[in-house]
Amino acid sequence: MSLAEAPVAETPAAPARATARLLRSELRLVFGRVRNIVLLAGLAAVPLLIGTVLFITQDTPVAGQGPPFLDRVTGNGVFLVFAALVSCLPFLLPLCVSIVSGDAIAGEAGAGTLRYLLVVPVPRTRLLLVKAFAALAYAGAAVAAIAVVGLVAGAAFFGVGDVVLLSGDTIPLAEGMVRTLGVVAYVIASLTGLVAVGLFLSTLTEVPVAAMASTVVVAIVSGVLDALPQLSAIHPGLLTHHWLDFGEFLRLEIDASTLLAGLAVQAAWVAIFGALAWSRFTTADVSS
């Protein structure tokens, strides 16, 4: 082996190793932070809380009322997953995703660690991708936590059985589980747009709270606009409009075009705000 060959062989591998190292440390940072762990635990407590309340009140007149799926839970624990997701989707999930994605860059800048991070032999584009991936992983973990705790608590409180779809047809539990996985995957995919928005806002400021708060505001304003019938023309493009389309998995025949429409809107938000975040982050002067 000649000396000249060695660097050629190593050059492509070295940044890849550095990226992998960076990704590992980023995931450790996100999932090791006490604040994020507490948020995750809080989200996981939602199905537990709903399950406990329903278990206590199931023989009283107030049973069988409330948001969608809530009245089904006492008959079949699987529905606790859906009831918990419906409860968390409007506010709690966007809040947690906003906190983590808004903190991604602004948090480092605010703490003065961003310039040290940029010394790592990894280009800024890749650093941004690592940050985005870690935030998305957290969003996935949050949805998965709700689903897993919901399923376990639902099974423990009420037992599980064949799943009655929205159409009134009954499918076996195994197929119900596959559809539940689809629901979880769709809800995670629905949060990607918000992660991209949070990441972009995070590149604009050195104050992490500002980025987090404005990301939450984006999600809430989107929800408010979605409720105004006068704006029905822009509804299909809103960030939050298709979030509840996960109900498609619980219909007689799953219509792929409905699901794809929701995913396409998320992809559009990711493309636009991902590109904005990239432009901002690769051109910004980092002094802190």
């Binding site: 969608p68 799926f69 859906f82 419906v86 929205l166 159409s167 509840l244 619980l250």
Partner: peptide, 8 residues
């Protein structure tokens, strides 16, 4: 089937 948000 008349479709609503998570209802039918």
């Amino acid at each position: 089937a008349l479709l609503g948000d998570v209802s039918e």
